[in-house]
Each structure stands twice: as C-alpha cells, then as structure tokens.
Amino acid sequence: MEVISRNATQLCDLYEITKEDIEAVREFKPVAIDKIPEMVDSWYKWLKTTAEFQEYFADPLTLHRVQKLQLSFWEEFFDANINDQYVSSRKSVGEVHARIGLSQEIYLAGVDHFLSLFIEILLAQDWDNAKINKVRRALNKIAHMDMTIIVQSYEHVVNQKITAQSKTLMAMSTPVTQLWDGLLLLPVVGLIDSRRAQDIMDNTLNHISQHHAQSFILDISGVAVVDTAVANHLIKITKATKLMGCECIISGLSPAVAQTIVELGIDVGTIRTTANLKAAIGIAFQKLNMKIVKQ
C-alpha cells in the first residue's frame, strides 16, 4: 500500500503551523516543563487500571525507560524544532506501538491526558486572553500533527505485518505430495491470485519432472471463488502439465463454483473435473492400471 509521506515543511504547511505558533509553544515551555514528571506519574496511575499495563509496563525497568522516553517526547514537543529529525522521532513512536501491538486507543488517550493537563496549566496563568488563545491554538496544531504522523506510521507497520503474514502463508501453501508412484496431489485452500498461481505452476511442474508423474490431482474444494482470473490460471496449469505428459484432474468443484463457472461462460474444454477427491483418485488409479480392493 502506498503511503503519502510528507516532510517537516509540508506537515507544517498542512497544519498551518507558523513561526508564531512555534514561538508561543516555546514560551509556554518553562511553565509546563516542570510539571511533566508529575503528569507522567498521573498518566501511569490511570494506565495501571487498564489491561495493557500488565502486558507492557509491569516490568519496572521497562516502565522507567518508557517514562524517560515520554519526558523527552514532550521536551521535543515544546522545543518545537519541527524538522525531518523531529518527524522521524514521531514516526518511530508509531512504529514501536504497532510492532508491540499497543493499541491506538491507549496512545490517543495518553495524548488527551497530557493535552488537557497542559490546557489546565495554561488557563491558570495570568496572561491575557489573546495570549492564552494563541498558545492553545499552537499546542493543538502541533499535537495534531504529532498524532497524524504517529497514526500513519502505526498503520504502515500494520500493513507491512499483514503483507508479511500473507507471504508466509503463501510460501507454505503449495504442498505437492506424492500419493502413489506416478500420482501427485495438491490440495489448494484459500485464494488463488497470480502470485500463488505461479507458485502452484512452478511447484507442480518441478514435482512432475522429479517423480515422472502421470497423473496430477488439483483439489480446489477449499477455494470458494472461481472467477475468470482463477479459471485462466487453472487452465494454464492444466495445459502445462499436459505438455509434460501428465494428466491433470481438478477435483472438489462445489455446486456454487460449478454454477458460476457455467454462467461466466468458461469453457473447461478437455479438463477433467470431479465433484470430490475420491472420484479423482478413482480415475487416476484407473489410468495407472490399478485398483483399490477391500481385503
């Protein structure tokens, strides 16, 4: 998935963060910064009531490390040096949360916690309204920018995780096995996309050549949808196996799949198909001049 990635200048433009905003936040820093350790404490007091606390922060060493990171996070926030390094430090927060599986909920609750405490402190200053409003706007803009960067990088890692998982599944998913001398079986479960179709093709042809197979059963009872793309792949696979002197039988066509194949108008031509694996094995054994008999 494509992610639009903005650099620091573009992000400032997007959130209309001006020099005045940055100055306002910096001006607020001396007032707020001393209170942050206290805020961190009260945050973890709340966090202790959640299930997440036990999972992520129960270990005192970890807790100490994370609290220190939090202090420097807010220090950076009030320094407001919004450059690419600032952006990448925010990104890494999102990435870490995603990798460890800490939910966005907890993170967003945290932002809310700190932001409302900042506003509390701000309102207690005897500054004029104009100044208070200016600082408030500025805090909001930068906090929102932070959230966007963090949420996006979180999402990016989650997407990468999903891609990785599907790759792993894909790699495991073409277990061609030899049922008998000259007879191969490949049960396909799940989706057939072009990557997997290529995997199936490669794997099958290799096995046919290795085992001098004469019959190959492709069982698709675990495939819910046969659209034109899947049909096209199946046709190609059966054609290639035929070229290698091996007959291909496609088994496990469910009633819904059979009906939709007909409605789509797919010509299965000379491809042998059966409703279930048992029938396919029967045909294959016949071809090998063999018979299963009851003892």
Partner: peptide, 13 residues
C-alpha cells in the same frame, strides 16, 4: 490477452 469473459459473465450472472 485473457479469456474475455468478465463483463459478459457479469451480464449473465
């Protein structure tokens, strides 16, 4: 370069 059955198939289905 594929089967050319997508749209006509949808029409039938």
């Amino acid at each position: 370069g594929s089967l050319g059955l997508g749209l006509p198939g949808i029409k039938r289905i």
